[in-house]
Amino acid sequence: MIFLLFNADRTVRRWIDARSADTGIGAAGAGVLFYLAGHENALIGDVTAALGASPSGISGLVNRLERGGCVTRSPDPDDARAVRLSLTPRGHASVARAHVLVGDLNEQLIAGFTASEVDVIGRWLEHVSRISINRE
Rank of each mutant, 00 (worst) to 15 (best):
F113W: 10
R14C: 00
V118Q: 11
A111L: 00
H39F: 02
D119Q: 13
E66K: 13
R81N: 14
H127V: 03
F6M: 02
A28S: 15
A27T: 11
G29K: 13
R135Q: 15
N106G: 15
W15S: 06
A80V: 01
R19G: 08
L36Q: 06
S54N: 07
H99P: 01
V83D: 10
I110K: 11
D79N: 09
I25L: 09
G24K: 09
E136H: 13
M1Y: 12
E40A: 04
L65P: 06
L101Q: 15
D119R: 13
R130E: 04
E66S: 08
R123M: 08
E136C: 14
G68H: 04
S132D: 11
V47I: 09
G122R: 10
I58M: 04
A53M: 07
A18G: 07
S129H: 08
I121A: 11
R84Q: 13
N134F: 06
D9G: 04
A111N: 15
N63L: 00
D78T: 12
S56I: 03
N63H: 09
G45F: 01
G68P: 03
D79Y: 09
V47E: 06
D17Y: 12
S116V: 08
R90I: 06
R97V: 01
S20G: 15
R19M: 02
A37D: 13
E136I: 11
H99E: 10
D119P: 05
S59N: 14
D17H: 11
D9V: 01
R64Q: 14
T48I: 05
R64Y: 10
D9Y: 10
G103M: 08
S54Q: 15
A93I: 00
P89R: 08
S86A: 15
D79C: 01
L101F: 06
S132W: 07
I25Y: 09
L33C: 08
S129K: 04
T11R: 05
A80L: 09
H92L: 01
H99A: 13
I121R: 13
L85Q: 12
I44L: 05
Q108A: 02
W124V: 15
V83C: 07
D119W: 05
A37G: 13
S132F: 11
I121K: 12
V71W: 04
I25R: 12
L4D: 06
E107T: 01
H92Y: 01
A30G: 14
